[in-house]
Computed example of a mutant assay.
Amino acid sequence: MQTSSRQLRLIILAIFLVSVTLTTWAQAQEAAGDSQMTSVDEVLDGDDSQQGTINLTSDNQGSRIYTATSDCEVTISSCLETYGNAELSVTVNDEKVISWARSHDKDPAKLIVNGKEVAESNQEVGGGDFTPTAQKTKLKLKKGDKVTLNLTGDFGRANPHLSLTGPGIEQKDADQGSSGETVMGSGGGFLWKPISDSRGGVAVILLPPKYRHEQFNKKIWINGQAGEVLEWRPVYANGNRMHIFLKKKGAQYGGPVKIELGLAKGGKIQWNVANGAQRTEK
């Protein structure tokens, strides 16, 4: 009788241990599944939040279409510098929300956003001459909205641009120029400040935040002239941007000003400023 009772207790204990083991295994599998699902969601969220830029310039004019992959906000940057007939526009689905048309460099026409002129977009600088400045417009989009950018014209040596910065744009390294190649800089955030607040009031260049120090070889040419750098500041500030201080005030460089920066992997990136004496944002 005692032997049978002992055997029964052993059987009950064995069943209990098997049950505990199976329960623990099932919970571990469920946790692993949850962890894997979370990782997938994080990847998807990360991809959607990546910011990229579509950029149209005088060398890359025409039309481009952006489709919102989720509800989001995008930034439009526009500046219509030109010496001949030119126009730009931004259409969301079938509605034109931004437009600008000018026939020559002294044309006073201003940027129009949602039917209203933006007064500061094109200001008289004296002698009947008008100078356009870059303007930024925020647009709220719904998933599936299509935004069409258009920039065309006879620009001459002017430097117009129309860009859209937003999520879901694959940012290719087209501006990483191969050896000997010069490409145009892209991405909103470029600033030419003719008189800086430090370093004796010399001109300072702020590069778009997409650019990092390690991409450059610390060489710069202003209108083809080397040796113009006073300080290549090793930190980031004012919107996470690089700062390059030159040896002269902006007005001393005249206009137009061609700025070329050497790349660590070879080639150069170029920006153009119409007038060295004027603050310029792109």
Rank of each mutant, 00 (worst) to 15 (best):
Val43Gln: 06
Val125Trp: 15
Ala86Pro: 03
Leu206Met: 11
Gly180Asp: 07
Leu230Glu: 07
Ser63Asp: 12
Ser196Asp: 02
Ala28Arg: 14
Asn223Gly: 06
Leu246Thr: 03
Ser186Gln: 15
Val90Glu: 06
Leu207Asp: 11
Gln215Pro: 01
Gln51Lys: 15
Ile76Thr: 00
Arg279Lys: 12
Asp107Arg: 04
Asp154Thr: 14
Glu181Lys: 15
Lys143Ile: 01
Ser179Gly: 13
Gln29Ala: 03
Lys138Tyr: 07
Trp232Gly: 00
Trp221Thr: 10
Thr137Asp: 05
Leu111Tyr: 15
Val113Lys: 09
Ala86Ser: 08
Glu231Gly: 01
Thr3Val: 11
Leu261Pro: 03
Tyr236Pro: 03
Ser163Glu: 02
Thr3Cys: 06
Asp34Gln: 12
Lys96Phe: 02
Leu207Trp: 03
Thr82Leu: 04
Ala31Gln: 10
Lys219Ala: 10
Ile244Tyr: 00
Gly52Ser: 08
Val20Gln: 15
Leu111Ile: 15
Ser35Ala: 13
Trp232Met: 05
Leu13Tyr: 11
Ser19Arg: 10
Glu260His: 06
Val202Gly: 05
Tyr66Gln: 02
Leu44Pro: 06
Asn217Lys: 04
Gln27Leu: 02
Thr23Lys: 12
Lys282Phe: 03
Val74Met: 08
Met37Cys: 10
Gly144Gln: 04
Glu228Gly: 02
Gly185Asn: 07
Glu81His: 14
Gly276His: 08
Asp173Asn: 05
Asp107Glu: 06
Ser89Lys: 13
Val235His: 12
Lys116Ser: 14
Gln2Phe: 10
Ala68Lys: 00
Gln135Leu: 11
Gln215Trp: 10
Asn240Met: 02
Val20Cys: 15
Trp232Leu: 01
Phe245Gln: 05
Thr53Ser: 13
Glu73Thr: 13
Val273Asn: 07
Glu124His: 09
Leu164Ile: 09
Gln123Ile: 14
Leu207Asn: 04
Val202Asn: 10
Phe190Gly: 01
Ala26Cys: 06
Asp129Glu: 13
Gly266Cys: 08
Glu120Met: 14
Ala251Trp: 10
Asp45Glu: 13
Ile205Tyr: 09
Leu139Ser: 01
Gly46Asn: 12
Val183Cys: 11
Lys258Ala: 13
Phe216Val: 03
Asn60Ile: 00
Lys218Ile: 00
Asn238Ala: 05
Gly84His: 03
Gln270Glu: 06
Asn122Gln: 13
Trp271Cys: 04
Lys110Gly: 02
Gln225Glu: 11
Pro108Arg: 00
Pro167Arg: 11
Arg241Trp: 08
Gly250Thr: 00
Glu95Arg: 15
Pro234Ala: 04
Ile15Thr: 11
Ser39Val: 04
Lys142Val: 02
Gly266Val: 07
Val125Pro: 02
Pro194Asp: 01
Gly200Glu: 04
Gly185Trp: 05
Lys249Tyr: 01
Glu170Pro: 01
Tyr236Glu: 10
Gly84Gln: 08
Gln225Leu: 09
Leu10Tyr: 13
Ile112Pro: 04
Glu124Thr: 01
Tyr83Leu: 10
Ala237Glu: 15
Ile12Gly: 05
Ala134Glu: 10
Val113Cys: 11
Gln36Ala: 15
Ile11Phe: 11
Ile15Ser: 08
Ala134Lys: 00
Trp221Leu: 14
Glu120Trp: 14
Lys258Ser: 15
Asp94Leu: 05
Trp232Ala: 03
Lys140Gln: 15
Ser49Gly: 04
Gln29Pro: 12
Ser103Trp: 11
Arg241Asn: 09
Ile98Ala: 02
Ile222Thr: 13
